[in-house]
Structures are given as structure tokens and as C-alpha cells.
Amino acid sequence: MVLFCSFFNSTIGRKVLMAVTGLVLVLFVMGHMLGNLQIFLGAEVINAYAYKLHHVLPTPALWGIRLFLLLCVGVHVWMAVLLTLASRRARPAGYAVKRVVQATYAARTMRMSGIILLAFIFFHLAHFTTRSVPGMEYNDERVLSPNEVSLVKHGQAVMKDGEKVTTFNVHDMMVAGFENGLVSAFYILATGLLCLHLVHGVSSMFQTLGLRNATWLPRLNYIARFYGWAVFLGFAIIPIAVLTGVLEKDPTGGETQAIETSATH
């Protein structure tokens, strides 16, 4: 183990840790985006998706995944801090004149975008996961009503032991969250910075792991740009849809339509 420690104490080893944890987070972010986009398929779809996320796996496994993701964020940030401090130490006196030759804006601002993203992650978890941001405690009936709706499948409420299965009203929580202009603005800004972070990060990951050559560099740069923009548009379209009134609250959780449909039969 002592031998392997030398790897994680080296600049390259630390970068490899950043690349690997970055890969986990890059893949998570795409899954998260695709999950979120289900809001456009109706309240019943996104609510059922949220229900599945919480019930398909046993609770300890869910917590395992959550802690693993947080660990990845932690290691990514920790390594970034160590490397940044080492870089600062390596150049105590700067230049009077410094010109950038070819470094992209995204590459030069990774630390800035990273710090703001970290702040966003804290806010985002407090906002939608623990729901404990003052004035936005969606677990409280007085803030979000109703906060429990029926789980709807194929247009009908899912029944279990003769009772309707209820689930948290994720659809309305998202709409309520984004109806706040400041929250939406921060959300769009953060996803914009995420785009910037990914445009450099996604191809940089392959460079750090040494998994690229001259032929693949331009392709990876293209993939990184595409990935970054796809993530930005996929996330930012939701607050935009809420602010423009395309998405509205659905207090029935998509059930009304289901009852009407079944009544006509």
C-alpha cells in the first residue's frame, strides 16, 4: 500500500484521480439530465421516475450510491485543491506581461467554474434533495400543496392493498423551484459553467489517462464540446420552460386525466 501511496502523492496520480472521479460525475450528470427531461412527458412520468429511483434499490444501496457520488465530488475537489496549491507554490512571482497563446477560455477557468459549481451542488442538494432552503421547504404542505400525489401508471393510479400508492410530487416541486427567478438564474448560470467545465474536462480526462493520440485529440475535443452543450441545453431548458409558462404545476400528479379516460370506457 505504501508503494501505491507514491502514485497518489505524484502530480500525475492526483490528476488520474481527478480524471476517474470526473468520469463518474460526467456520466452521472448525463443520467441526471435525461431523468430531468422526463418532466416534459407529464407529471405522472417524472413522479413515477422519482418513485422508482427511491424504491427499485433497497435504501442502503441508494445511500451507497449517494455516498459514492459525494465521495467522487470530495476526491475531485480535494485533488484540485492540492494541485492548485502546488501550482501556486511553483510560481510565487508572476509575469509583468503575460499573453495567452492557445489555451482555451474553458481550460483557463476550470478552477473558477469548479468553485462556483461546488457552491451550486451544495445549494442544489439543500434545495431539491434535503428540501431545507428557507422558504423552499417542499416537504411542508404549506409550501408545496399537495406534496404527495398518486403514483400513476398507464393512466391509472397504482393500487396496493386496496389503497392508492402515493409518491412525492416531484413535478410540482421542480416547477415551484424554478418559478423563483433567482433560483432559475443561478441554475442556468451553474449549468452554463458546467458546460464550460465539461468542454475542457471531458477531453482532458482522456489526456490525463493517456488514452488518446493525435488522431483522437480533435475527435475528443469535438465530443467534449458536444457533451458540454448537450448537458447545458438539457438542463437549462427546464427552468426556461417554467419561466415561459410551458411547464405548469399539475396538482393532480397526472391522475385527473386518467380518471376521465377510465370513466369514458
Binding site: 492526483r14 490528476k15 507554490r89 482555451t104 481550460a107 489526456q207 493517456g210 485529440l217
Partner: peptide, 25 residues
């Protein structure tokens, strides 16, 4: 005491011998 690489590519741009980032990979 040199710093770590952040893959920004300024080294490659100023290298008088055109050493490429492929070498770092």
C-alpha cells in the same frame, strides 16, 4: 517543485521545437 499539468496546452504553443501534448499523454 514544479506544478501539475492542467492540459491547457500553452507549453506546446510556445515550444520552439513543436513538442506536442501527445508526449504528455
Amino acid at each position: 517543485g514544479f506544478g501539475g499539468c492542467t492540459n491547457v496546452g500553452e507549453c506546446e504553443a510556445v515550444c520552439p521545437k513543436g513538442i506536442s501534448l501527445d508526449m504528455i499523454a
